[in-house]
């Protein structure tokens, strides 16, 4: 357990959170290597099935992160994402998935420092939570 390194799959939008991750990198900020960034054009394209697939097949946590309300490059993709996360947060805990394993954040393009801090915080939280039960089951 002490050596447990969680896997955090992060769906980040091209215009805000991915840019923030880029900024964190060019600013030489460090954040845990547990994070697996998946760049999507918009959080509005993250179908709930991506989140479920990640949680069933190896992720200890999933982050969906995009632009702040009002800043979406596609006007309202982040609002759609928020409803889908609401839906998932309603469904998954009924089957024992801890609510902390799924997070939604808004990290703007200029928030490189905030990006690095949130990744550190999330990984710390997942380490405390321990390995996901779902990912090691023989039935997926």
């Amino acid at each position: 357990m002490e050596n447990f390194e969680p896997v955090l799959v992060a769906f980040v939008c091209n215009w805000c959170t991915y840019t923030a991750a880029d900024l964190a990198g060019t600013s030489r900020l460090s954040y845990p290597k547990n994070v697996r960034l998946i760049r999507v054009m918009c959080t509005g394209m993250v179908d709930p099935q991506y989140v479920i697939k990640a949680l069933l097949e190896g992720a200890d946590g999933v982050l969906v992160s995009g632009c702040h309300p009002g800043d979406c490059h596609y006007i309202n993709g982040n609002y759609k994402a928020r409803r889908r996360i609401k839906l998932l947060k309603e469904i998954l805990p009924q089957f024992g998935f801890e609510p902390e394993r799924l997070r939604l954040t808004w990290i703007g393009a200029s928030d490189g420092i905030e990006f690095a801090e949130i990744m550190q915080e999330l990984v710390k939280e997942l380490k405390a939570l321990g390995p996901s039960q779902a990912k090691m089951k023989m039935v997926v």
Binding site: R82, R83, I118
Partner: peptide, 8 residues
């Protein structure tokens, strides 16, 4: 809406 699902 649904502010409770946003953030850490």
């Amino acid at each position: 809406e649904f502010q409770e699902v946003v953030g850490l």
